[in-house]
Structures are given as C-alpha cells and as structure tokens.
Amino acid sequence: MPTVSMTVNGKAVSGDVEGRTLLVDFLREDLRLTGTHVGCDTSQCGACVVHVNGEAVKACTMFAAEADGAEVGTIEGQANADGSLNVIQQAFQDHHGLQCGFCTPGMVMSAAALLKENPKPSEAEVREYLEGNICRCTGYHNIVKAIMAASGQDVAIAAE
C-alpha cells in the first residue's frame, strides 16, 4: 500500500492507504477527524467539504492519494488557537444556523471558502455558493444569515 503524507490542520500526517481510499475516509478512519461527515456518498450533500490547498472540495470525491503533499483543512482546524469558536462558527451559533448539526461542518467550511474569495457577499451570492450543500432541517435562511453576519454585514438585509 502506498504511503500518503499531507499537512492536516497545520500538522504533518502520513498513513498507508489503498488506492481506492477516499480522502474523507482517510480523515475519519485513519486520522480520527470525524467532524468531516459522510452524508450521501454521491457528492451531492456537501457534508464532507474540506479545504485542499485553500480550495473547498468534497472529500468524498477525492482519493487520499490525490492529497499527497497537500495542505488540508478540516472543521477541527477552524476554531481559534485557544479553542474558542471562530467568527463563522460563532455566527452559526448566534443566528441559529444549525439544527441537527450534521451538515454544519460542511456549511462552515463552504462559508469559510466563500468569505475568503468574497469577503462581503450578497445574500444571492451566499445562496448560490451553498448550492452544493444540503441541509435537511433548517431551510437555509438562518444559515445565510449566519454567513452574512460572519462577513460583518447587517443581517437585517437578509430576506425574511
């Protein structure tokens, strides 16, 4: 079995993987980073979104071997250095952008990627960016509101 090496949340890691091992499975099973969820196995739900070399990717669509040498960020790496919630996570809590929480890691990772490339997105831009993430509980109003708040915008501009 080939060995893959990557940096995950700032830490060098490596492991032996079969060629068919998906990145999501390597993260969850080998590294025990279980915040990245598997919701559909078909790349439609977005619960497995992670960052690979700064880009949001669905970890169920990428082999672990493809991430060899990459910088990978997971939901576990989103908290502040002191362990407190980062601005996006805090906004999800403050604006009730979660319900069961299953989709939340993927939503937060997608939100972080969006805000990196577009620090002040419009409501329409947030909704469009989240098209690859499915929430089966909340609808999307409070998720959009949380992302708008995390961007420093007045959440009153989000449609009621």
Results as ranks from 00 to 15, higher is better:
Ile75Arg: 05
Glu128Gln: 14
Lys11Leu: 13
Ile75Trp: 11
Glu18Ile: 02
Phe102Ala: 06
Arg20Leu: 04
Glu76Pro: 00
Glu71Cys: 01
Glu131Ala: 12
Thr21Met: 15
Ser110Leu: 08
Lys11Cys: 12
Met109Ser: 04
Cys60Thr: 07
Gly46Val: 10
Pro2Trp: 06
Met109Asp: 04
Val17Glu: 04
Leu23Val: 11
Met109Cys: 09
Lys11Thr: 13
Gln99Ala: 09
Cys100Asn: 11
Phe92Arg: 01
Val52Gln: 07
Glu55Asp: 14
Arg127Val: 08
Ala59Asn: 04
Cys60Phe: 05
Ala113Phe: 04
Gln78Trp: 07
Ala159Leu: 12
Ser151Val: 01
Ala91Met: 02
Thr138Asn: 02
Phe63His: 12
Glu76Met: 08
Ala81Val: 10
Gly35Pro: 10
Leu85Cys: 08
His96Asn: 13
Ala64Glu: 09
Lys11Phe: 13
Leu98Gly: 01
Ala70Phe: 07
Leu22Phe: 14
Ala112Asp: 06
Leu31Arg: 08
Glu76Ser: 05
Pro2Thr: 11
Gly83Asn: 12
Gly152Ile: 09
Glu131Phe: 05
Ser14Asp: 15
Ala112His: 05
Ser14Arg: 13
Ile157His: 02
Thr104Met: 12
Asp82Glu: 06
Arg127Met: 05
Glu123Pro: 00
Ala12Glu: 15
Leu130Trp: 08
Ala81Glu: 15
Ala12Tyr: 01
Val108Glu: 03
Asp68Pro: 03
Ala113Leu: 03
Cys100Phe: 12
Glu55Trp: 06
Ser110Pro: 00
Thr74Val: 06
Gly69Pro: 11
Pro119Trp: 03
Asn9Ile: 08
Arg127Ala: 11
Ala65Lys: 07
Tyr140Ser: 04
Thr42Glu: 15
Val72Lys: 04
Ile147Lys: 00
Met62Leu: 14
Cys135Gly: 14
Cys137Lys: 13
Met6Thr: 04
Ala158Pro: 00
Val108Pro: 03
Phe102His: 05
